[in-house]
Design a protein around this nucleic acid. Sequence first.
DNA 1: GTACATTAAATGTATATACATATATTTGTG
DNA 2: CACAAATATATGTATATACATTTAATGTAC
Lengths: 164, 164
Amino acid sequence: MYIHIFVTSFETRPRVRIEDEIKQQQFKNEYQKAYINLMLTSSRLQVQQAALFKPFGLTLPQFNILRILRGQYPKPATISLLIERMMDKTSNASRIVDRLEAKELVTRKQCPNDRRTVDVLITEKALALLKKMDGCEGGRETGIANLTDSEARELNRILDKIRT
Amino acid sequence: MYIHIFVTSFETRPRVRIEDEIKQQQFKNEYQKAYINLMLTSSRLQVQQAALFKPFGLTLPQFNILRILRGQYPKPATISLLIERMMDKTSNASRIVDRLEAKELVTRKQCPNDRRTVDVLITEKALALLKKMDGCEGGRETGIANLTDSEARELNRILDKIRT
DNA sequence: GTACATTAAATGTATATACATATATTTGTG
DNA sequence: CACAAATATATGTATATACATTTAATGTAC
């Protein structure tokens, strides 16, 4: 997975388990610890999620695009719409669609109404693939499942506050 | 920043602010919501952190390596040690060191004791740079600062549980 | 001490991010 | 209508991740 971890604190100790690393740390304060903890945890979850996806031959961004396209189906989506929904505006939807097209998971053709735009449509093959993948999604098979329902709720509240 | 967001839910609505996106969602459960929320939040924080680093001409992985090297200073570090401490075992320390070397922020020379290994040493130039950067670190200037101390503590507890 | 395994680092390739620029088309304004 | 601005997509380049392979040096077994 792709994540940059900005860690100021792993400078002087040997590596053990990541959680041990953190526990041994002396952080400047709870905020710094929370920051690093958040990066580590999201990285960990992404690795778990990617492992679930791997047998199906899709990367996470590719899967994400396919999910958006399925949401539109049977209507096509433009690249702009994909970028909008992807929420990572700087990621490159064109090239991810290139790869999906190469795998015959989407088709791409110029839109007649506005010839600047492209109609991207998910194929039957991709719909079948997604159907098989429904289940290994959304963190239920990751460490998130360790939480109680109220802890998940509290986590959501705190994360919302961070993004406020 | 590099983060893959696995979002099953942004398939049918127009994009507004990310937090609005989430609020409008109907998630399968709190777990799915927490998963997505975690990805979004860490992504957001990384973008904020990267923006702080940009004026100094360093990427986050490069900064991270330099911090490790400063922790070792005046001793050198081998590539193996950097990988160990980076905690992203699959990331490519050799090539990150290449770039730091090109910027004259580290030196690299074969270790005489074990000629397989390389001594990577942080330069004075890099130490001065890091000194200037001390301050824009650890999330204090990011959304983490929105939390109270006890919220940060609770967040840490919950994240630890996820990684258990 | 040679042969084989192990280790350290570098290199190769595919994918993705981050950001700038190019190209084609449409829209808007005079 | 002509021409500039805006829009949609694609392309280029640097960096990083993810993973496999290569190369050199060391360690170990016989």
